[in-house]
Design a protein around this nucleic acid. Structure first.
Lengths: 121, 121
DNA sequence: CATCTATGTTGACACATGTCGAACCAGTGC
DNA sequence: GCACTGGTTCGACATGTGTCAACATAGATG
């Protein structure tokens, strides 16, 4: 597979990955189960350092970035790793090791799902 | 603390400018200042109870609800009040006392701003 | 194999947060 | 005035979270 991914605008249908989570917040009151499932995603973005890391990855070329490119956020390297792990556990990022460096990329379906949650009725 | 003049409700300040906050997370890496300003909104929605309360208010008739209508989320009433205060401090809700009851309503501009943040490029 | 560089993990700490019961405040009605 | 109801604040506690230094691990390179 020669790596010819410049900007995958037309992704293959992710469908059942994250989409069937929940309706917009304004549609009807969330159930306890829906809230328990959805809150961690917001929580993951609720820290300034994580927000910067996520934004750095999401805005990077192809929605993918090496740790070395984004780790300048004013905290120590272990702390960066800790926050990246949190973002990974929340399902917002995925990581992959290629040789010496580790690359993080955004989970596009999650971004879309969160956007839908905040869609005004 | 025997200060008699206390008016905890009807704060004149809450929910100032939140709309003109930041570009989408995917546009460019967030600065420290942008992240510090934006993260609290996500943090406020990062708790299941607060997410249910916010959803209950947002989905209610006219985007407004009495506390008595939404306080059935499985925690005590002081805890409900505590979470509603957090949502107010984050600029997501505003409160108003009308007679016996206190009504909370969503800040529509905030909802739109957060939706824009998650808009995919 | 030895060593260096890039990340992740562990342990420890201070601090923030969610939760409750009790006390308090604001209106309504007796 | 008094009691009652809705809602907030206070005080206290257990748990969670962000942070770092120290250590551990994975590849690359000599």
């Amino acid at each position: 597979m020669s790596n010819a991914k410049v900007l995958p605008l037309l992704d293959p249908e992710p469908a059942e990955a994250v989409a069937p989570c929940c309706p917009p917040l304004t549609e009807r009151p969330f159930s306890a189960e829906e809230a328990e499932r959805t809150a961690p995603m917001f929580k993951a973005l609720g820290d300034p350092v994580r927000l910067r890391l996520f934004s750095a990855v999401a805005s990077h070329e192809g929605g993918e970035a090496c740790v070395c490119d984004i780790s300048d956020v004013g905290v120590s390297q272990p702390t960066v790793s800790h926050h990246l792990k949190k973002l990974r556990e929340a399902g917002l990022l995925t990581s992959e090791r290629r040789g010496t460096w580790v690359y993080y990329r955004v989970e596009p379906s999650v971004l879309a799902a969160m956007g839908q949650l905040l869609t005004a009725r």
